[in-house]
C-alpha cells in the first residue's frame, strides 16, 4: 500500500499553501511589478474600453454590446442602488457601479485561462476597497446628519435602560468602526483565497497523481473532473461575492443616510 501511494518521481506531494500567492515580480527587482498589480491595471483598461465602446453609439434600438453594458448598469442602478438607498440614490450609482464591475472583473480573473489569479486574494486590494466604502459611508452620514447627531445615533440607541449602555455602547462602536469594514474586506479576501487554493489542490493533486503508478494515473482524471466542476462553482462564488460586497456597501450608505436605523 505504501508503494502504491508513493509517487513515481519519488518526491512527496507539496500541498499548495499561502506561499503560492506570493508571486515573483515579472521584471525588475521590486515589489511593484507583480502579477496582481498588472491584473488590476488590465482590469481597469478592460472595463473602461468595454463600457466606452458600449456607450459610444447609444441608440434607441441597442446593439448587442450596448445591451450588455446597459444590463450591467441597469442591474446595479435598479437592484442595488435604487432598491436599497431609496430616493437620492442617483449620486451613489457611479461609485457602486465602479465597485461592482471592478470587483467582478478582478474576481473572474481567477478562472480566466492564462490569467488565473483572482486579484482580490491579495489582502491589500480588499482592504483599500473597504477603506473607500468606510470613508464614503461615514462622510455621507456626517454630512447628512451632522457629526454629533450621527455619532450619538450610533452609540446610544433609544429605548434602552441606562445601565445597559455600558454593555452595549462599546459593541456598537466596535461594530461600526472596526468590525464592519474589516469583515467587508476579509469576506471578499477569504472567499477568493480559499477558492483559488481549492482549485490549486485539485489541479496540482491531479497532476501529481498523473506521475504516479498506473493505479494512481487512473484516479487522476477524477481529480481533474472535480477541479473543472469546482471552477464553475468558483465562478458562481466570484459573481456572488462581487454582488455582496456592493450590496453591503449600498446598505451601509443607506444606513448612514437614514435618520433612524
Amino acid at each position: 500500500m505504501r508503494d502504491l501511494l508513493r509517487s513515481g518521481t519519488g518526491g512527496g506531494f507539496v500541498p499548495p499553501s499561502s506561499s503560492d500567492f506570493e508571486l515573483p515580480p515579472i521584471f525588475g527587482d521590486n515589489a511593484y511589478t507583480t502579477k496582481p498589480i498588472f491584473l488590476v491595471f488590465f482590469s481597469v483598461i478592460l472595463i473602461s474600453v468595454f463600457f466606452i465602446l458600449a456607450s459610444r453609439k447609444a441608440a434607441v434600438v441597442p446593439s448587442k454590446l450596448q445591451f450588455a453594458g446597459e444590463s450591467v448598469y441597469g442591474f446595479v442602478r435598479n437592484e442595488l442602488a435604487k432598491d436599497v438607498i431609496g430616493h437620492d440614490f442617483l449620486r451613489f450609482v457611479p461609485y457602486l457601479f465602479t465597485l461592482f464591475t471592478f470587483i467582478l472583473v478582478n474576481n473572474v480573473f481567477g478562472i480566466v485561462p492564462l490569467l488565473q489569479f483572482p486579484t482580490m486574494s491579495r489582502i491589500s486590494f480588499p482592504y483599500v476597497l473597504a477603506l473607500t466604502v468606510y470613508l464614503v459611508f461615514h462622510y455621507v452620514g456626517i454630512r447628512k446628519q451632522g457629526a454629533l447627531k450621527y455619532f450619538k445615533e450610533i452609540m446610544f440607541m433609544p429605548g434602552v435602560p441606562k445601565a445597559a449602555y455600558i454593555l452595549i455602547t462599546p459593541l456598537e462602536i466596535l461594530t461600526f468602526f472596526v468590525v464592519r469594514p474589516l469583515t467587508l474586506a476579509l469576506r471578499l479576501f477569504a472567499n477568493m483565497f480559499a477558492g483559488h487554493l481549492l482549485l490549486l489542490v485539485f489541479i496540482l493533486g491531479g497532476e501529481h497523481l498523473l506521475q504516479g503508478v498506473i493505479g494512481l494515473k487512473l484516479i487522476s482524471p477524477f481529480a481533474f473532473a472535480v477541479g473543472i466542476v469546482l471552477t464553475f462553482f468558483e465562478f458562481m462564488v466570484q459573481v456572488l461575492q462581487a454582488y455582496i460586497f456592493t450590496l453591503l456597501a449600498a446598505l451601509y450608505i443607506a444606513g448612514a443616510l437614514a435618520d433612524e436605523h
Partner: peptide
C-alpha cells in the same frame, strides 16, 4: 442580508 451580517458583526465585536 444586512441583518445577518450585522448580527455576525455584533457577536464578533
Amino acid at each position: 442580508e444586512n441583518a445577518m451580517w450585522s448580527i455576525f458583526g455584533y457577536l464578533l465585536s
